[in-house]
């Protein structure tokens, strides 16, 4: 793999993302909503005389759960299928470069664009919170929150790439991406809620089942980071704390890594063996 080539493609991909109106829309939405949360935190600290960063962080987690998968799935789904649809992929692959370089370059470029979007949102709201004096009591936990959101970005980007590698048209890929977003964000959890109530699932089973949804994993990891406990999550959270305790961060990060790597590798394999340009 030639790093110069990868970097050239990554820069191109980043450049395209910054010109992609969906990407800009999501970024603006993310910044706007996180600013809104900062404003709420400020009005809260105005009344109480101090801020409760835990609640602000909880709202940020909620916001990340909603927007980050949407953003990453959409750009990921467009990545390969979009160029294929515009026929530029065949031209690109006809250059003296390998498919691995194209894939890694695109992944890296989109990763950078999502990173920029994420740190812009977190940076601006962090700035507002800091100036207002209602920021995190432990700045590290804020950075870790950003890091976890970024990990979720990578997971969703990989899933998006997989969708993109399996479809030929960008429109279809984005449609499937949006459906997956719905599934990850709403349908999966609603289904699990229904199952938990209807089947009287034991809480350990519920906890392990919830690890199947990377959004849940991000959420639990983020709550653990901010609160140092999962008691907010009721019996299942308390069970997890008592049963796995200090191993939990490792479990969460491990699951996120698996979620980022497996679809990403599968997408590459599909792309590398694709016969359809």
């Amino acid at each position: 793999m030639d790093l110069h080539t990868v970097w050239t493609i990554a820069r191109k991909e980043l450049r395209d993302a910054l010109h992609n109106r969906w990407f800009l829309l999501y970024t603006l939405a993310f910044i706007g909503l996180s600013l809104g949360l900062s404003y709420l935190a400020m009005s809260g600290s105005g009344i109480a005389g101090f801020a409760g960063f835990g609640r602000t962080a909880a709202s940020l987690i909620n916001l990340v759960l909603l927007i980050v998968p949407l953003m990453a799935l959409t750009v990921g789904a467009q990545s390969l299928a979009g160029e294929q649809e515009r026929k530029t992929m065949a031209y690109l692959l006809a250059q003296p470069i390998t498919r691995l370089e194209v894939y890694v370059g695109k992944y890296l470029g989109l990763t950078m664009s999502l990173f920029a979007s994420l740190v812009l949102g977190f940076g601006i709201s962090g700035l507002v919170l800091a100036i207002d004096g209602s920021g995190a009591s432990d700045p590290w936990s804020y950075l870790i929150l950003v890091g976890l959101a970024f990990a979720l970005c990578l997971v969703m980007l990989s899933v998006g790439f997989l969708v993109s590698a399996l479809t030929r048209r960008a429109g279809v890929a984005v449609g499937i991406g949006l459906f997956l977003w719905l599934a990850f964000v709403f349908l999966g959890d609603l289904g699990m809620m229904g199952t938990a109530v209807a089947m009287r699932m034991p809480i350990n089973g519920l906890f392990w089942l919830s690890l199947a949804n990377p959004l849940q994993v991000f959420k639990m990891a983020a709550i653990l980071n901010i609160n140092a406990t999962l008691d907010v999550l009721g019996p299942a959270g308390i069970f997890a704390m008592q049963e796995y305790g200090s191993k939990l961060p490792l479990i969460f990060i491990g699951v996120l890594v698996i979620w980022a790597v497996l679809p990403g590798v599968a997408a590459f394999v599909r792309f590398d063996t694709s016969n359809d340009f």
Binding site: D16, R86, T88, A90, Y91, A94, T98
Partner: peptide, 18 residues
Amino acid sequence: GRQARSLLGYVPQELAFY
């Protein structure tokens, strides 16, 4: 493929540039 393709310049039928 990389070495082979480095020996050739390609003008496609359907022009697809950025």
